[in-house]
């Protein structure tokens, strides 16, 4: 098992890559990997190679995007088809979170986090909840630490798939959709 660069990833059986918090050494990973079956380990290697360039489409971006195909009225929210979701620790900035909270469409955000496999967010939220550290942590995690690496964003009206490869959503329209 080769660990490349400062890749830090552990792959449990559900295929979701979880990147541990900072400070873990390569040795920790090696231990983890040994506990997996051979097939997972092979997959692991491929993913680890990718880890160097991780940090992908996050739910903040998802919450800002809609389908802009000609004639589409309700292009928001885009449904997430998640093939590979990655978690990565990001430093928290309370001020930024508070500012973004006001801009986020909460319902779409909760639904999106569910389709990424995160269910800890409350159905309803208002700005008074931002005083709670626990809520802030969850909000931060869902907004910035969940990354969609491979998958697609699907237009709710037409079913057109906007592919997400290597974490970059491809929102470019075809010639006849402009």
């Amino acid at each position: 098992m080769k660990v490349v660069g400062d890749c830090k990833a552990v792959v449990p059986c559900d295929g979701v890559v979880r990147l541990p918090r900072r400070g873990l050494t390569h040795r920790h990973h090696t231990l983890h990997h040994r506990s997996f079956s051979r097939s997972v380990r092979v997959k692991c290697q491929v993913l680890l190679l990718y880890c160097d360039l991780l940090v992908k489409m996050r739910l903040l971006t998802h919450n800002m995007l809609s389908s802009n195909i000609k004639g589409v009225v309700n292009g928001f929210p885009l449904r997430i088809e998640a093939e590979k979701v990655v978690e990565k620790t990001v430093e928290m900035n309370g001020e930024f979170l508070k500012k973004m909270f006001e801009k986020i469409d909460w319902k779409a955000f909760v639904d999106a986090s569910r389709s990424m496999g995160y269910t800890e967010l409350p159905e309803e939220a208002d700005s008074s909840m931002l005083d709670s550290d626990e809520f802030l942590n969850r909000f931060h995690h869902a907004l910035l630490e969940l990354h969609l690496e491979e998958g697609a964003l699907v237009c709710p009206e037409t079913g057109r798939r906007f592919p997400v490869n290597k974490g970059i959503p491809n929102m470019l329209l075809h010639e006849d959709e402009v």
Partner: peptide, 24 residues
């Protein structure tokens, strides 16, 4: 440096931002 929070492929001529989003 911290990575960009988002990178996407989009057209400046036909931006894909949701219509209700502004002042962000």
């Amino acid at each position: 440096l911290p990575m960009p929070v988002g990178l996407l492929r989009a057209d400046n001529n036909l931006p894909a931002w949701r219509p209700s989003l502004k002042e962000v």
